[in-house]
Amino acid sequence: MRSIATRRIFIAAFLVLTLLPSLQMATRWLPELDIDEQRTLAAPPSMAHPDRYLQQANSWFSDHFGLRALLIRLKATVDYRLFRVSDKVHVGRDGYLFYRSTLDVEKPAVDAYLGTHEAAVVEGVRRYAEALQQKGIGMVMVVNLLGDRFLPDKLPASVAERPPLRRIDSLLNKLKQVPNVTFIDSTAILHETERSRPIFHRTDFHWNDPAAYPVAKGVVDAMSRAEGLAGSAWTHPLSYETQSYSGGIARFMPLLRSPTEKSIFVTPSWQWPGGFTSVSGPAPYTDVSHVAPGSKGLLHPVLFVGDSFMDAWMRNGMAAYFEASYRLRWGEGLRLSAITSAIPSDARWVTVQFIEVQQAALQAFADKADVTRSIDLLQARAVR
């Protein structure tokens, strides 16, 4: 009798679990959780294309059945907590997380691209830097390697055992030798910095802000020397604190509760110059800053072209050391000619930063025809 009762309970529980999604879908009696899947969910089926109706209905149901988000989160949590795996994230040692798309797709793609385009990238940088110099504009370049290069001991074995992809190293070595380019070796700076403090978040793709501090300062130091200042325009010391944090990779995993860490963040220790203002836009810039006319001890205006790693420069007070600054952000299709058209008339510096998998930057300099258009734009520019 007990065995029969147990079987009935099991069957009843199975039926309830089977029917719950349909019941939830019909009644929505429980609030649904949200999941950022980085894609557009399937739309309801339409009779506009009868031959595809069943396929559309199946896709729509798969994306919208009741309790879907909860079930996805439950599965992802079990995978992560018990087996230390995730569909879209490499789970490393000591709580370090790495995007699968970055290590599995983007880095191999860049390595393959450089296999055929490295010389074109270097030549494009050389030609463009020379054209800038002829117009009295200095070029500074910073390329950021990602966390897996600095933390190989934190990678899961499945990634650590792969053959290394090192064409990016060859590119950086060549860029260091390009005339008229002030190349800031962020890799060397970060290797020195990691001797005293962490340089990357555990749950986020990015370097932490205190790691960006010496690189941003190195940029300002080099510009200060080039402008003949008695000392560096950069005057503020590094100040930082520890905070609880759950970064973008952690939030990207659809868990019931995202992993957290204790990470370090800068605290402001700089002084904004008199009359300093910073605004979003106008297009094509993401933000623009100015100071009061006649402010002393500042560097000449600069156009910054960078990605999300450059955001950490700004959180370190970078804009406080320029008479004016203008920012552009790398994105698909941003061409060098568009960057050139956006160089303000008062700019004396163009500072280019990009991470090692930023294909938009590599393609911008490898596009020979567009580099030529950019140089033509510079040559038509009046000399100030």
Rank of each mutant, 00 (worst) to 15 (best):
Y53V: 13
L54F: 03
L54G: 07
Q55F: 08
A57H: 01
A57P: 02
N58M: 05
N58Y: 06
S59H: 10
W60C: 07
W60R: 13
F61K: 08
F61S: 07
F61W: 10
S62N: 13
S62M: 05
F65P: 12
F65G: 12
G66I: 01
G66W: 00
R68P: 05
A69F: 00
A69Q: 14
L70S: 13
L70M: 09
I72Q: 06
I72F: 00
I72M: 09
R73L: 06
L74V: 15
K75G: 05
A76C: 05
T77N: 00
T77R: 00
V78N: 02
Y80N: 03
Y80K: 01
R81N: 11
R81C: 04
R81S: 11
L82R: 01
F83M: 09
F83L: 14
F83W: 02
R84S: 11
V85P: 04
V85F: 01
S86T: 07
D87P: 04
K88Y: 13
V89I: 09
V89M: 09
H90C: 13
G92M: 05
R93M: 12
R93Q: 14
D94Y: 11
D94N: 08
D94V: 03
G95E: 08
Y96H: 10
L97A: 10
F98G: 01
F98M: 05
Y99T: 11
R100H: 11
S101K: 14
S101F: 13
S101I: 08
T102F: 00
T102A: 05
L103H: 01
L103E: 14
D104E: 15
D104Y: 06
V105K: 15
V105W: 14
K107Q: 12
P108E: 09
P108M: 06
P108Y: 10
P108R: 01
A109N: 09
V110N: 04
A112M: 04
Y113W: 05
Y113I: 06
Y113V: 07
G115H: 00
G115Q: 02
G115P: 03
G115A: 07
T116P: 05
H117G: 05
H117T: 08
